[in-house]
Design a protein around this nucleic acid. Sequence first.
DNA 1: TAGATTGTTAATCGATTAACAATC
DNA 2: TAGATTGTTAATCGATTAACAATC
Lengths: 214, 214
Amino acid sequence: MGRRAGTDGLTHIQVERFMHYYHFIANRQDRNPDDTFTSAQVAESAGMDGSLVRKDLAAINIRGCSGRGFRTDESLEAIRYILGFDEILRAVIIGAGRLGGALASYHSFTDYGVEICGLFDIAPHKTGLTIGAFEVRHVSSLPNIVRQMSASIAILTVPPEAAQESADNAVAAGIRGIWNFAGTRLELPKDVCVRHEHISVGLAELGYKLRNAT
Amino acid sequence: MGRRAGTDGLTHIQVERFMHYYHFIANRQDRNPDDTFTSAQVAESAGMDGSLVRKDLAAINIRGCSGRGFRTDESLEAIRYILGFDEILRAVIIGAGRLGGALASYHSFTDYGVEICGLFDIAPHKTGLTIGAFEVRHVSSLPNIVRQMSASIAILTVPPEAAQESADNAVAAGIRGIWNFAGTRLELPKDVCVRHEHISVGLAELGYKLRNAT
DNA sequence: TAGATTGTTAATCGATTAACAATC
DNA sequence: TAGATTGTTAATCGATTAACAATC
């Protein structure tokens, strides 16, 4: 799967910004159906300069209209395209605890091109339980399901001490990307994409702001 | 509560880096008890340059030892101090769904100076249920509890359509910081600290990396 | 001492903003 | 036309890295 037309690949920070634009524009359209928006409106919502918004949009071949702004539908579509949301990836969740269950029930993942196709746990007493739309399966069936469904992502919601082993098993089964909520560092082959979702970082940041607020 | 000695306030990005250092150093100490580490070791774990680590540590008055490195315990303590982890903030969770329950059961928050002191929901049938160590309370009792406990943080795990109202109520009750998991933008007074934890951003980033991997 | 690593400055790199002619 | 906003370059700003003398 190659790069999309119009860029040489986005940086981590650009992807974040495009997500912000996407949410802002989509939200705005819901409340106030208008077929255009301006770079200043988007910029203001993020406390940044309009020229950066224009530059980002230009980078993905969205051209605005002088005096008017940008077309809402066209821009949303272009962002979906550049981020690849219409190219579905399948994911399995490993760890059917509260967080795993919460993620399994989070229906918006499909909006971003990811479809959950299985929820796994190592505890035999959880096997067969229904959580959200899923029946919990034992991890021993992970390799089969990953292969059958061509799943490429594993979402790790296991306890920290089980994270490395779970990740290793997932990779052995053919998983190519890991979204790790276990809060531990993982040692994995370099060709496996890993995203550490370290929830405590968000907490620490909010706490810092709050403790140092005037 | 003023700034801590040794800095004029850390940027958002520096806080993230200090969290990384903290986790790396603490982890390293667990596995391999050694009373020093070098800037190169920390840097390698994050794919950055050692001089940045040294500069960050110098900024919070941690001085290393030429030829040896930095003292583990001293560094951890200094990071805890600068991030304010020993100055406890109390938090309430609003929304006792799966995610709220998962966060209520996440015991490590205290490591970062935040203590959960209540779990609330608007649904009468949830009132009285026990989730983790908490009994779910009805949101109508939120103002009282916030005052009694001097809670300053609200963790929002309500559905998107309830987020603004929940936030307004929390702020009216005296909450000064909001950790928002609802995925919606909130309109709040400027003196309220808000952190939007937009889970889909992480997913989009992992998806992007994966789709564009060689 | 020889080797390793710091502390720190200068150089580099990259990202953001300012500015404004072009254009709808 | 007058007003608004884009597209884009140049200027600025800030963050990261390179380099190396100082030091344990």
